[in-house]
């Protein structure tokens, strides 16, 4: 589904991604871990199409398309979704109107009429139940005055509504207490099926107790320096990152 080859990205003249290679197939959950400043968020931003980052080489194949040829909204229409580490507050637009606008645009691109209001509302209710969200959510302004946990829940709610093929969860666990984390993780797990895939970006192993990955990759200094199964996350939790980053630094320089 997703095939990233030799991806390099630069911001303000500094190379942040130095040649990423990553393949993700349908039905898989991948975790990308790494210390602060390793390039995790840059990678997710580049996949989503943030123009702050200049892609200097490489490709991101998503099914038959190179995502790098597409605008962020076109990538979303193809089925890419990014759950933001810091969701943006949008005063003046309610959650329900925002989601309606997003769904209507996607359907328009697919040549479909807007979803009838009743169906849309029904679907929203169903997905809100999944995430233990109170009905009042819908009429609140998008992320405005939301707590950290509410913002993250709202990200997963949008994911549930948009039903992406590829969901990238950027530090979704930050700002969540343990109960909220369980609810969010449960939501993500329920949305998982054999046709979609998830990339979980996280600093800590904690989230991976609830969203169990098939593969774990360690990102350091703009490169994936180690890949393995879910046991790799446990090793990192025990030993920290030093033991692998040292080896990598010897190989590529720090």
């Amino acid at each position: 589904m997703l095939k990233i080859e030799n991806l390099k990205a630069v911001v303000d003249g500094v190379e942040i991604l130095k040649g990423i290679n990553l393949s993700v197939n349908s039905g898989e959950v991948h975790a990308i871990m790494g210390p602060n400043g390793s390039g995790k968020s840059t990678l997710s931003s580049v996949i989503a199409g943030d123009e702050t980052y200049e892609v200097s080489s490489g490709s991101i194949l998503f099914d038959d398309d190179d995502l790098l040829d597409l605008d962020p909204d076109q990538r979303a229409h193809k089925g890419v979704f990014l759950s933001f580490q810091y969701p943006v507050e949008i005063p003046g637009i309610s959650v329900s109107n925002f989601i309606k606008a997003a769904i209507t645009e996607k359907r328009k691109v697919l040549g479909l009429d807007p979803m009838p209001a009743k169906d849309l509302l029904w679907k929203m209710r169903e997905k809100m139940d999944l995430l233990n969200m109170k009905p009042g959510y819908l009429s609140r302004n998008m992320n405005e005055g939301f707590s950290g946990g509410e913002k993250k829940r709202n990200e997963i709610f949008q994911m549930a509504m948009l039903e992406p093929k590829l969901a990238i969860l950027d530090e979704t666990d930050s700002g969540l207490d343990i109960d909220a984390l369980k609810v969010v993780a449960n939501g993500v797990n329920k949305l998982k099926n054999s046709n979609n895939a998830t990339i979980v970006i996280t600093h800590y192993q904690r989230l991976l107790d609830y969203i169990v990955p098939d593969y774990v990759h360690v990102l350091h200094n703009g490169r994936i320096i180690k890949s393995g199964g879910k046991e790799l996350a446990h090793q990192l939790e025990e030993k920290g990152y030093d033991w692998i980053t040292k080896l990598a630094d010897e190989k590529w320089g720090s």
């Binding site: 123009e51 605008d71 909204d73 943006v88 997003a102 645009e105």
Partner: peptide, 28 residues
């Protein structure tokens, strides 16, 4: 610009995102 990008990633085109944000600005 961050809000425009955020809306883009949800499938809302740049032009529509700008219009929605402009409308939201006036809404209160």
């Amino acid at each position: 610009e961050d809000a425009i990008f955020y809306m883009n990633t949800r499938g809302i085109s740049k032009q529509d995102a700008k219009a929605i944000l402009t409308y939201a600005f006036a809404s209160d």
